[in-house]
Design a protein around this nucleic acid. Structure first.
Lengths: 204, 204
DNA sequence: GGATAAAAGCAAATAATTTGCGTTAGTGGG
DNA sequence: CCCACTAACGCAAATTATTTGCTTTTATCC
């Protein structure tokens, strides 16, 4: 029996944000995250357990349980951090190629087994569907940078939600549901569809 | 430690298909499925455990472990069955309204907490990403029925993959990633976007 | 009907998770 | 700078979940 979901007394924080930004707490978090990354890189994820992570991180299992709740939450936390973009999207001079480049790179990365695992981990978090939302926010922020630049150049730009719907969602959907794997030229088609709907002003 | 993923000796089957279609095996499967559904309807999913399901189903836990592996696999199996459409999509006379009706119903159902949980459960299955693919296949089969009817009426019909990309993927994406929740009129917009790309080629 | 083997039951062994309590170490007030 | 305060950690016992070896039941095929 895990724990009821209703009257939870907030024992576990979101881990990343500041519970006690200070020394030890942050140190433990970093160590545990590193341990997860290492173990994930070495063994198969089916042989990953909380006690194992704890041992490698040099903390007791109860520390992890108290702070993250269970393995899924911990994995989601780690995955979210890895999904956070570290740099702004490359500026190629046009929205079309900016999008094509970024989306193609995203597709490439998330089509791989480890990439898909990241998305799965983020989605698996039960107590915190916030993680998935944040993951989506990351992408939208990247799109926002691109459209801002495009708008500054005088290009007509689509809505952020529309970019997500037309270009990002299909990629993610196909990865998650293992539908026909997107091949070369797929991303170009999505972007073309997005930009084709620009001048004609679709209802929204 | 769960079990390695590579050299698995096929101890657990896909559960639903025929390992031993006959009497007892099928009976146990039905009982266990029912137990999961009942418990899921009663308590919160955080207080759902294999031993609990076993107790309610009147089987020993080891039976469940041997057959499904773990709780996630079992939940995925149950969810997949519930996601299987039991009837053909309603024939309203046009592809546009057929799609609008079906997608709106899908959106409505999967936006709810229990609906979203079904999708999550299907995706959570590790040993069997096939479940998710099958889930996608269900939807495509529904679309196939609609487009076949439309084609018989002489309507121009889009590709199945295109329907998934343009109409289904955005809905699922928004549900999973908790992005801005789709409101009224959302589905109509998606279908409009899909069908807009059909006849009016001249648009330039 | 009887041989065969898959699937289930049972129970002991192992591993994971929870929990109470004492200890360590950031944080804020004097 | 020192002290009180408390969040977060460590430790270990208690609980619960999972695995596993072996036996028994029961479909399935001759």
């Amino acid at each position: 029996m895990k724990e009821a979901g209703k009257p939870k007394g907030e024992p576990r924080g979101a881990a990343t944000p500041g519970l006690r930004p200070g020394g030890r707490s942050a140190r433990v978090q970093a160590t545990v995250h590193a341990a997860v990354r290492d173990l994930l890189a070495m063994h198969d994820r089916s042989e990953l357990s909380v006690p194992q992570v704890a041992a490698r991180a040099g903390v007791t299992p109860s520390t992890i349980y108290r702070r993250w709740g269970d393995l899924q939450e911990l994995l989601a936390d780690v995955a979210l951090e890895r999904l956070k973009p570290e740099t702004d999207p490359i500026d190629t001079g046009s929205l079309r190629s900016d999008l094509e480049l970024w989306l193609e790179q995203y597709r490439e990365e998330m089509s791989s087994a480890p990439g898909a695992a990241l998305i799965h981990d983020v989605l698996a978090s039960i107590d915190r569907p916030l993680g998935a939302a944040q993951c989506c926010t990351f992408s939208k922020q990247q799109f926002a940078v691109m459209t801002a630049r495009a708008a500054a150049r005088g290009e007509a730009v689509p809505d952020l939600d529309t970019i997500v719907d037309v270009c990002l969602a299909p990629i993610v959907y196909r990865i998650l549901f293992g539908d026909t794997v997107p091949g070369a030229g797929y991303v170009e088609g999505l972007v073309a569809r997005l930009l084709a709907g620009l001048e004609p002003r679709p209802a929204r």
